[in-house]
Design a protein around this nucleic acid. Structure first.
Lengths: 150, 150
DNA sequence: AAAAGAAAAATGTATATACATCTTTTATGA
DNA sequence: TCATAAAAGATGTATATACATTTTTCTTTT
């Protein structure tokens, strides 16, 4: 068995906020993806489409801000949605701007997926209990705020 | 502005556990990646190398379990570590099994990265406060457990 | 000992993610 | 007006992620 090079106590990597977040996110994403699979949509895609349904047409950069996604990542993430014809991309008067909106197919898929989302979401909320659930959302908001404050 | 197709209240996607987790994880990962950049290593890579340093040689499948990573993902994630010669992959007596261990370079990089990790981790813990910090870790453990219980 | 089954990892394919840089278009300023 | 700067996206490149399937090796069963 190997030892530390110094006599200082090694920090506990097991408490790393980043790796704990990433591990939990992998597991939760798999659960949501599995629940949404009958609708042929993934969790990350559903969050974009549901936002477009709620807010209507959005600038691409606004969509990126709202989801907290790097702009270049959003450019890539829109491609599968386009390929499935769930969204439409139009130009603004300002020719630099792209306006994203749901197609009829997109509305249909969100409608299909929404009850599936409700089911898995309710399962998590019930299992956690509403107090740990809201503690989680609070902690995530706080943690994200710290990260973005840098 | 578009309305719901039915008169049922629309569920609030803003409270989706999955999308909130994913958003926070993106932001936090960017902060940890930025902090570790001077050592030439990413957060997800650091968590693997730090685990190997702590535990010594591990079976590939054990490593996957410990990080909570799909086995096929780990196969891919090991490639950059191999390319940088931070790890070595040996065969067990059982020729199906791969044994992963740190090289001298790997130890060196972990040593370089550890104080950087400590810095960013301390920043998050301080900013959150220890109570919200432990609430976060508890909630993440609970949530991950729910996800894996399916 | 040969066939069938199980375990471990790799491969094919698709999506998600971000940094550095580039292109296009609009706004500004001398 | 023309040059320069700024805004909005797209592209090149690299990593991260998982499902379905395949390959290799070992174990079990007959």
């Amino acid at each position: 068995m190997s030892h530390n090079d110094s006599s200082l106590p090694e920090p506990d990597i097991g408490l790393c906020i980043c790796s704990n977040l990433r591990r939990a996110t992998r597991a939760v994403t798999q659960a949501y993806d599995a629940a949404l699979r009958p609708a042929g949509i993934r969790a990350s895609q559903f969050s974009m489409l549901a936002l477009l349904k709620k807010r209507g047409e959005l600038r691409q950069s606004t969509l990126a801000d709202l989801i907290g996604l790097d702009g270049t990542t959003l450019t890539r993430n829109l491609q599968p949605l386009l390929k499935n014809e769930w969204i439409r991309i139009d130009r603004d008067e300002d020719q630099r701007v792209r306006l994203i909106s749901l197609t009829a197919e997109g509305h249909r898929v969100v409608g299909l997926a929404t009850p599936l989302w409700q089911g898995v979401q309710a399962h998590f909320v019930d299992s956690l209990g509403s107090e740990q659930w809201s503690a989680l959302l609070d902690a995530l908001n706080g943690t994200g705020a710290v990260a973005r404050a840098d």
